[in-house]
Amino acid sequence: MTDLESLRQGWRYRGDARPDFAIAPGPGQESVWDYPRPPAYVADDRRVEIWAGDRRIAASQQAIRALETGSPPAFYLPAGAFDRQWLRPSAHQSFCEWKGQANYYDVVTPTLDLKAAVWCYADPLAGAEAIAGYLSVYPESLQCFVGGEAVVPQRGEYYGGWVTSELVGPWKGEPGTSHW
């Protein structure tokens, strides 16, 4: 078994059966435990805005939500939705067993310098092609809005999920969830 296969097989939950501890969704809600693994990539036409302090750095109605078991979705926007004058390439990189190698950008404005706050999968692994060249952000670093609703960041240093009122969990990043 390759390292990639080993990483992929290590997940206990895959969205095929909601665990007993999961909250059942009500009308108009989604359970993060119904999302699949590997992730699904779903177009979302709600207006998404991303702000760094008083500067809007991105806006689009052509987002893609990455839906993965146990996590709030990350919203990915087309590269052209970003005001690139505020983005600087970062040396930071990470690897996802489903998406591949992520490259990062710092957000630098006259009043802010946010390290590795934006990421992109320029050449994603098979299955994640829908987000190739799209960018996402950590909502704990930036102010994000979906359809006018302020996003709450997913807890945990690594996670970049966007929590909105339509979601029920619990989700990874909360205390006691490291084994998920």
Rank of each mutant, 00 (worst) to 15 (best):
A128W: 01
Q85Y: 05
T164Y: 03
Q143A: 15
P39M: 11
Y105C: 09
K115C: 10
D16R: 13
W180F: 11
E174Y: 07
Y104E: 03
P36E: 10
V42P: 06
C120K: 13
A59D: 11
D54M: 08
R14P: 01
R55M: 09
D83N: 12
I57C: 05
L87D: 01
L67V: 00
R37L: 14
V163W: 02
W51D: 09
V137T: 10
L112T: 01
G160R: 13
V168K: 04
R155S: 15
P27Q: 11
V163T: 09
S71L: 14
W86A: 02
A22N: 13
E97Q: 14
S141V: 00
L77I: 12
F75C: 01
C96S: 15
L112E: 12
T177K: 10
P78F: 07
V42T: 14
A59C: 12
W51G: 06
D113F: 14
P139Q: 08
A128T: 07
L114F: 04
T2I: 03
W51A: 06
Q154S: 12
S94Y: 03
F75V: 11
C96E: 03
P36D: 11
Q93H: 11
Y35N: 04
E49M: 08
G156H: 08
L167R: 01
R55Y: 12
F75G: 01
E174S: 08
Y13P: 02
R55D: 06
W51C: 07
G100L: 08
D44R: 10
L77K: 05
T2R: 09
M1F: 10
D44M: 09
W119D: 06
Q143V: 08
L135V: 07
